[in-house]
C-alpha cells in the first residue's frame, strides 16, 4: 500500500483550486446555465407537484400531513444535492472506460476517485440545493419544529449520511461500466430509484418495505432521517442506524470502484 503524500486538507485545497477554475470556465455559458437551472427546478419539483395535487383531495397520507411531506421532500432534495453536484462525472464513466480516456486518471499522484470526482461540478444542482434548504426552513417553521443546536447537529449528520447513501447507490451502479458494455440501464435504474425516496415508508408493507430498507435503502435518503425530527416518539432502532448505513454503503461502493480500477486494462494491447 502506498502512503498518501497529500493530507485531507491539501486535497481540499486542490479541490477548490480545480473547481474554482472549472466553474469560472462554465459560467461563460450563461444561457446554458440559466436554462439548465430552470430545468432542474422543474424536475426537482415534479414529485412534489404530484403530492400537492393528491393533497387537494385528501388531508393526510398514511397519517402524514402535507407540510410533513414537504419537510421530507425538502430533506430529500438537500440530501441528493451532493450526489448531483459533486459526483456528476460518473454519468460519463461508461464513455471514459470505453474510449480509454479513463487511463489518464492513473497517472497523477492523486487518489483516483478524488481526481475523477474533481473533473466536474454541476452548477445547476445548486438550484435544487437552495430550493431544498428553503423548503426545509419553510416547512419546519410551519410545523413549528424547535431547532436547538443539538437538533441542528443531528440534522447535519443525518443529511450527510443520507447523501452518502444516495452517492453510494448511484456510483456503484455507474461502476458497472467497468465490467459491462451496456451499463447504462443499471445506472439509469439506480438513479430512478431516488424518485421513491420522498415517499413515506409507512405506506409500504412486506417485500417493498424490506426492499427499500435493507436492499435498496433509499428509505435512508429522506424518510427515516426525517422521522427523527417529525415524529421522534415513533422512531425505531432502524433509524439510528442511519449514519452507519451511509458510511457502510460508501465503503462498499469504494470497494467496487477499487475493484473496477484494478480490473481495467484500457483499450488495445
Amino acid at each position: 500500500m502506498s502512503v498518501a503524500i497529500r493530507s485531507p486538507a491539501e486535497y481540499l485545497r486542490l479541490y477548490f483550486l480545480i473547481e474554482g477554475q472549472y466553474i469560472k470556465a462554465r459560467l461563460h455559458y450563461r444561457a446554458d446555465f440559466m436554462i439548465s437551472s430552470v430545468g432542474m427546478l422543474f424536475s426537482s419539483l415534479a414529485t412534489l407537484g404530484v403530492f400537492a395535487v393528491l393533497f387537494s383531495t385528501i388531508d393526510e397520507l398514511a397519517g402524514w400531513s402535507f407540510m410533513e411531506m414537504v419537510f421530507i421532500y425538502a430533506f430529500y432534495m438537500v440530501a441528493i444535492s451532493p450526489m448531483q453536484i459533486l459526483f456528476d462525472q460518473f454519468w460519463f464513466l461508461r464513455f471514459d472506460v470505453r474510449q480509454g480516456t479513463f487511463l489518464k486518471y492513473y497517472f497523477r499522484p492523486l487518489n483516483m476517485m478524488f481526481y475523477y470526482v474533481s473533473e466536474r461540478f454541476d452548477l445547476k444542482g445548486l438550484t435544487q440545493l437552495v430550493l431544498g434548504v428553503g423548503l426545509l426552513v419553510y416547512s419546519s417553521l410551519r410545523l413549528e419544529l424547535g431547532w436547538t443546536p443539538g437538533r441542528l447537529a443531528i440534522l447535519f449528520v443525518t443529511l450527510l449520511s443520507a447523501s452518502l447513501v444516495q452517492i453510494s447507490l448511484v456510483v456503484a451502479a455507474a461502476c458497472s461500466a467497468f465490467w459491462f458494455i451496456n451499463s447504462w440501464p443499471v445506472l439509469s435504474l439506480a438513479w430512478k430509484m431516488r424518485e421513491f425516496a420522498p415517499y413515506p415508508m409507512t405506506i409500504f408493507s412486506g417485500l417493498m418495505r424490506i426492499t427499500f430498507t435493507y436492499i435498496l435503502p433509499i428509505g435512508f435518503v429522506a424518510f427515516f432521517p426525517s422521522q427523527l425530527f417529525l415524529r421522534p416518539e415513533t422512531v425505531s432502532g432502524v433509524v439510528w442506524a442511519a449514519p452507519f448505513v451511509g458510511i457502510g454503503l460508501f465503503a462498499v461502493t469504494y470497494l467496487v470502484w477499487s475493484r473496477g480500477v484494478d480490473a481495467y486494462t484500457g483499450t488495445g494491447s
Binding site: D32, I35, S36, S37, V38, G39, M40, F42, S43, K124
Partner: peptide, 12 residues
Amino acid sequence: ESIWGISTVKDT
C-alpha cells in the same frame, strides 16, 4: 449548447 434543460422541462 445543451438541451438538457429544455428536455427536462418537457419531460416534467
